[in-house]
């Protein structure tokens, strides 16, 4: 009798463990299925000029999204809002399941304070068109500054990691060079390593090859390609490199007049564009090549 009771107890215990496991899996599934980045009715205006208008965009975990479009269409603004370089006027941006631009206070959504911004922003890294490396620091110093003062790594730890990252972008022999001693392509690769050193979940690339000499574009795109295949990163990229967008991305968004005019898998968007403006843009861009 007592054996039966013990057996039953064991069984219920096992059941509850199983339940918890199930709950855990469900939670993971929920996290995996919810988008990494969500723009919810986001609007951006400068005075009376509307730059982005009711933007709704979900980006899945590990998804690679390229944003294309004519200048002034608001595509760079999308990245800058996500990096919190621009305030939004309406809507909410979500990152990894929590609001970035807002926080919950007494059950209400209020604009995020600096502390909240800093915490959520830590999941995002950005690479800029004009590199924005710190000119007074070597490549290695550029890559250890924030990991030490923000992530709290020891100098040794940070330097080891930075050296690994510089090695990954093919610059292990340049780690003690100052930015001015590097070519544009090398600078941009240092900038990528510097952003990665903060261990972001989302990487933003804002026209990262537009300021480069044509023969240096390839080395930077190769690094980005490698990142996409070897790391679990959600990537959002504003680019004019149509061939790269076609080959690299899971989805392409064509921005026009502050809206997503058309989006879809690259084959569809480049092969069979539905929107008249997309066709015009693509033929103009491809003709120029």
């Amino acid at each position: 009798m007592s054996e039966t009771i013990v057996g039953l107890e064991n069984l219920t215990k096992r059941c509850s463990v199983l339940e918890e496991l199930k709950l855990g899996i469900a939670r993971t599934e929920k996290v995996m299925s919810e988008p990494m980045v969500r723009f919810e009715n986001v609007a951006k205006r400068y005075g009376t000029l509307s730059v982005l208008d009711e933007l709704n965009l979900d980006i899945a975990r590990n998804e690679k999204v390229c944003i294309i479009g004519p200048s002034g269409s608001g595509k760079t603004t999308v990245l800058r809002m996500l990096m919190t370089l621009e305030r939004i006027n309406e809507g909410v941006i979500w990152v990894d399941g929590e609001p970035l631009t807002h926080m919950r206070k007494n059950g209400q959504m209020v604009p995020a304070n600096e502390r909240h911004l800093r915490r959520v922003r830590g999941k995002i890294g950005m690479v800029f068109q004009h590199f924005n490396l710190f000119p007074h620091m070597t490549a290695l110093q550029n890559c250890v500054e924030a990991p030490i003062s923000v992530l709290g790594l020891s100098r040794q730890e940070a330097e080891t990691r930075a050296a690994e990252l510089l090695d990954m972008v093919g610059l292990s022999d340049k780690k003690n060079h100052f930015p001015i001693q590097l070519s544009g392509g090398q600078k941009q690769r240092v900038a990528i390593a510097r952003a990665l050193a903060m261990r972001p979940k989302v990487m933003l690339f804002d026209e990262v090859t537009s300021a480069l000499d044509p023969e240096l574009v390839g080395e930077v795109l190769n690094v980005i390609r490698k990142l996409g295949t070897e790391h679990d990163l959600t990537m959002l990229m504003v680019t004019h490199q149509m061939a790269f967008a076609k080959e690299f991305s899971d989805r392409v968004c064509f921005f026009y007049g502050g809206k997503i005019a058309e989006q879809g898998p690259p084959d569809q968007l480049f092969g069979d564009p539905q929107h008249e403006r997309t066709r015009q843009f693509l033929s103009a861009v491809l003709e120029a090549r």
Binding site: M83, R118, R121, F128, N132, L133, E145, A146, V150
Partner: peptide, 29 residues
């Protein structure tokens, strides 16, 4: 340069750290 401010935000540097380590050394020069 504005880009230096933007890079500091993107790297999540606290304002004072960014001032001391990034902006001031360049401003002093």
């Amino acid at each position: 340069d504005r880009g230096q401010y933007e890079a500091s935000i993107a790297l999540n540097l606290p304002r004072l750290t960014a001032m001391r380590r990034i902006f001031l050394p360049q401003a002093i020069r």
